[in-house]
């Protein structure tokens, strides 16, 4: 589902004399359906950059970057948007939503964007929030007012609302208590079982060990690394 070959990424700072900051060189990654791959490496090694490249959030600097058959280097914005809508799920560490939209609607939104009926989408959102132990009294409130752990659970529910064939997870268990952490690991296992290809960053080593089939150390892709 994911094919990365010889992928490079530089950032060029046009307003600082055109300074070029190399971040990735010759990155390689293959992920099959039903497989969960954990990205590892020291902080700043490029884990998040690679994840964002896979999500289409960053512009690739060279090489091959194909997700679910779509070449992200050449795809139009509209094709990437369509990929994200139906195929490519993403759980970020940060919640970015319109303030005042209730948590339930935030979770239901990806389904509504796919044309699901409103009541079915909300029912699915409620099911996930229940499973993640988010108190029902919070469902009608905007998650912008929530604690870090509560926001995290809203993000996870949103990312798992639709059975995406490809899932990108950025620290999905970071600020969770043991009970909810276990729920998230179950969700990941279920996604694998239905055939989702998953790429994740897990600082939480036991969580990583619990769900990842393989680890890929991105340090090998850093521009200074020996080939």
């Amino acid at each position: 589902m994911i094919q990365v070959e010889g992928l490079a990424k530089d950032f060029v700072l046009h307003n600082q004399g055109g300074a070029r900051i190399p971040v990735l060189r010759a990155a390689r990654l293959e992920v099959a359906p039903g497989e969960c791959v954990a990205l590892t490496g020291a902080s700043g090694a490029g884990k998040s950059t690679l994840l964002r490249l896979l999500q289409g959030n960053y512009v690739p600097g060279g090489g091959t970057l194909v997700v679910a058959g779509l070449d992200l280097a050449t795809a139009s914005a509209r094709e990437v948007a369509a990929l994200r809508r139906g195929t490519l799920g993403y759980v970020s560490q940060f919640l970015r939503v319109v303030p005042r939209v209730p948590a339930l609607d935030v979770v239901a939104e990806p389904l509504l964007a796919l044309g699901a009926p409103e009541d079915a989408a909300r029912a699915r959102a409620a099911e996930l929030l229940t499973r993640l132990n988010l108190p029902e009294r919070l469902w009608g409130l905007s998650p912008t007012t929530f604690s870090g752990g509560e926001q995290q659970r809203v993000n996870i529910a949103r990312g798992f609302a639709h059975p995406y064939p490809v899932l990108l997870l950025d620290e999905p268990t970071a600020s969770l208590d043991p009970v909810n952490r276990a729920v998230v690991l179950d969700l990941i296992r279920e996604a694998k079982a239905r055939g989702a290809a998953i790429v994740g960053i897990f600082h939480d080593a036991p969580a990583r060990a619990a769900v990842a089939d393989r680890e890929v150390d991105v340090t090998a892709f850093s521009p200074g690394a020996a080939p």
Partner: peptide, 17 residues
């Protein structure tokens, strides 16, 4: 381009500014 791509990885100097 995609809104988040243009804002998170701006390619043009003016956009970066």
């Amino acid at each position: 381009g995609l809104t988040d791509r243009v804002l998170d990885d701006p390619q043009h100097g003016y956009t970066q500014l």
